[in-house]
Simulated assay, not measured.
Amino acid sequence: MSFTQTKSEAPGTGFLMSSTQAIRERLRDAGASFAANANIAEYLLPGDIEVIQAEVERHVQGVLEALVIDTSRDHNTKATAKRIARMYVREVFAGRFEPAPEVTDFPNASGLNELYTLGPIAVRSTCSHHLVPMTGRMWVGVVPGEKVIGISKFARLANWIMSRPHIQEEAAVMLADELERRILPKGLAVIVRMQHQCMIWRGVREDDTIMITSIMRGAFRDDRTLRSEFMTLVKDQP
């Protein structure tokens, strides 16, 4: 897929420059979603990440000024806008802007059809309502089909999916969809347990509240014994 780079004139300079508005227009023209938990890597051109990061920095600086924070004389906040912009674009929201990690699959040559589980895998994301962290762990259960992947790839795919603003329920479904698409399992189970800072850092401040999301597909949905075995294995893990 190829795109024509849209440029606009930088005010007062006479020079053409890219802007996030141009990127949004490109996404709209392609009929692509740029919802908070979408991945837009396919539609980005060279230099777009730098454009996004620079614009985020400008707007964060505006937020700091609106909060009446003196960033010119306070040594603690002089570079805060730059740090936040880099953090959002290159780290905590990187799953929006980076392509999926390379995951090589292998044929299930031995015909394995027994349950295997992975976890706990540390996961972290961001609540799309308040842009504050959600952190926790996840477990995956698989009854293999025709394909298998290395166990480290589960964590890489989870990090790619979770590094976007989410609500937990949608994040778990997106992860299950991605795993199912790649390994075509006979059964797939995903359990995500997360603590939400929007419940701790603000609001009602329920410190020990945990949200659990459970997805059962294929053999796990249809076979109560298999589902029970997986749940017991997860329960017995620290």
Rank of each mutant, 00 (worst) to 15 (best):
A10S: 13
I84M: 07
M138E: 04
V142W: 02
P11N: 03
K235H: 13
R137T: 14
P120K: 01
G119T: 03
A171R: 04
P99E: 03
Y88G: 02
A122F: 15
I149C: 00
T225H: 04
G14A: 13
G218A: 10
V148D: 07
F97Q: 11
H130R: 10
I161N: 01
Y43Q: 05
G136W: 01
Y88D: 04
V140R: 06
P185N: 00
L16E: 13
R24Q: 12
D177R: 04
N39A: 08
C198N: 05
T71S: 06
V143P: 07
R181A: 15
C198A: 05
F3G: 05
I23P: 00
G141S: 06
A155Q: 03
I215H: 12
A41I: 11
A32S: 02
L112H: 10
M194R: 05
P99S: 08
E170F: 11
N108H: 05
H59V: 12
I149S: 00
A32N: 02
G187D: 05
I121W: 09
F3H: 11
F93Y: 14
I84E: 02
A219L: 06
E57V: 11
A122K: 12
L44E: 04
R227H: 07
S128Y: 13
R221H: 13
M174P: 00
T80G: 00
S2Y: 13
G95A: 06
V60K: 02
L188G: 01
D74S: 09
E206L: 09
T213E: 08
A171S: 08
M231R: 06
P144H: 10
M17K: 10
A35R: 15
R164M: 01
C198I: 01
V63L: 13
N39T: 14
H166Q: 13
R224Q: 09
I191V: 09
L131D: 04
I69H: 07
R28I: 15
A158F: 11
L226F: 14
L27G: 01
V140I: 13
S152Y: 00
A158W: 14
G136H: 03
Q237C: 07
A171W: 04
V123D: 01
G187N: 00
F154A: 01
A94N: 07
W139T: 03
